[in-house]
Design a protein around this nucleic acid. Sequence first.
DNA 1: TTGTAAGCGTTATCAT
DNA 2: ATGATAACGCTTACAA
Lengths: 329, 329
Amino acid sequence: MKKLNIKEFSSIIGVSTATVSRAFNASGRINEKTRRYIIEKAGELGYHANIHARNLSSPRSNIAGLFYPLLAGEQPDYFINEIQQGVQSALMDSGILLQVHPFPARADAELTLETYRTYVLSGGLGAMIIVAGSAESVELVKVAREAEVPYVVIGHMSGETRYTVSFDNGQGARLAGKFFVRTGRRFPAYIGGHLDKRKKLGFLEGLGEISDKLTIHSGGDAFIHGANAFRELRANRPETDCVLCANDVLAAGFIKAAQESGATIPEDIAVIGFDDLSFARYLTPALSSVSLKLNHIGLSAARQILKLLDGNDITPEFVECELIFRDSA
Amino acid sequence: MKKLNIKEFSSIIGVSTATVSRAFNASGRINEKTRRYIIEKAGELGYHANIHARNLSSPRSNIAGLFYPLLAGEQPDYFINEIQQGVQSALMDSGILLQVHPFPARADAELTLETYRTYVLSGGLGAMIIVAGSAESVELVKVAREAEVPYVVIGHMSGETRYTVSFDNGQGARLAGKFFVRTGRRFPAYIGGHLDKRKKLGFLEGLGEISDKLTIHSGGDAFIHGANAFRELRANRPETDCVLCANDVLAAGFIKAAQESGATIPEDIAVIGFDDLSFARYLTPALSSVSLKLNHIGLSAARQILKLLDGNDITPEFVECELIFRDSA
DNA sequence: TTGTAAGCGTTATCAT
DNA sequence: ATGATAACGCTTACAA
């Protein structure tokens, strides 16, 4: 069954192409009866306006791209997943489709970036949501500006103050530090992967008077690194009695290793994770965590995009971190 | 800075539009020197071929859509997330972009479905990956056929034998049943959400001689439902000594409630989850689970799509379930 | 190897 | 309210 184009379709049903076009574009100026007739016939004959011709003729794209740095390596990226869910629920029923654009850090970054750049500049996307956190994110913002595509960045990006949904990792970490002090802990440790200077600093601030006791362990971002961190701490800093992990997966690994060695949590060591991914409550003990409200952030970012797409202006949004207390601290 | 089109660009650099086009489309017939010159100038002047005009002129779309039923309701859908990761890693560097298309079950399904239908039939997608599991999935396959878009379905769909990457939930559940029998368990329970007749049946088969002792609890698919299931079982079937949960999140809820009530796992009750999501190993006790190898499945599906897009034929793929032993059973 | 020009299927402008 | 037709920006015969 060959596909009908507007010319064939319109001539079959006996109207002009312009009328057919009007029937499908809420442009007013058309008899309601004619409109209904055309819509009905289209269903019958299987006519569908070609989307490329449409986009070409009146420049637009109803596709939003979600760009994010690939940090976690092999494992499923729960962090992005939660953001994506939020974005999707906001976009659902808006008519905007979501495309996901992970980009690797370091090595292959350039190639991917160039691909995305070309794609965006060629008009492929109608909007961009960019998750901050790497040099490439910054480049992508430049691309968005260059292509004059509405965009919103998630997270903190220096120089970008207008189109953002941001949060302050430092503030979240401070909360954790203060909590440890308040609950009488004495020997804190921080377990971090890459890219979290702000978390470290915030933690230090929150720790206040006991900040000079802080031990820092930097491995990777994965489960296994959390476990490694515990073992190393146990060997070199057995006095450690509280730990902030840069993400919940690290915290899970840390707890696992602690339990295997016979340490009890939170009695021997209190642990707080970061991100508050939804599996945090599944753990035993249920993980206390600095919540970034990722789902909410995704939702907000997408709503901002929708506003921009409607031609409205937006104001930057800041989402406060919150310490969620469960059983691990 | 106004955007250049091919006409302007070509006239500025003194060649024809055709030559510019050739420079960007590996069609041969062009002097390598000219080509390099054009590419260079394009970079300098910021010329980018309009993607819509391109797709219009020679029908194509380098976008693949991942369609999946929205089952989990509010919470992040870890199941799909792992598939998506696999798909993405296969697509990366292929030049194919990924669009994600969740569709709600029941109520609003029709609207969403119609939107997607229109989109696909209008030529928006170059390929479709469809996760089976609802009536809408079946409709989407029809759409793919109608639009003559290459597609692959993930999971079991009756009537669809050609373009699939499938697995057999029943087989996986059988494994669990057999294991429980082999390890001397006597009073099995099954905790399921929706849509899992096959799991139930397979489990029953695997249970063999103790299958007549099976208790079935059907609540929802979420964490809380797993916890509820434990409490109900404890009240009504205290003899229960082994449980298969229809997914890992249910299992996590079940375990949590069991621990709170003082039951030990796996001594008092052995529990096996389903899907083997990556957080399974974070739990305490680490969750034994029927692995669907979701990441691998996503990878395979995307590879099949790539083959189809290259004009090659494919043969259906079947992925065997595997029981992953950890500490909960 | 390169240029000319006819599509590709819409939307938008201008008549009617 | 509807119809004719000129863009929209590219690809691809066909000619040179």
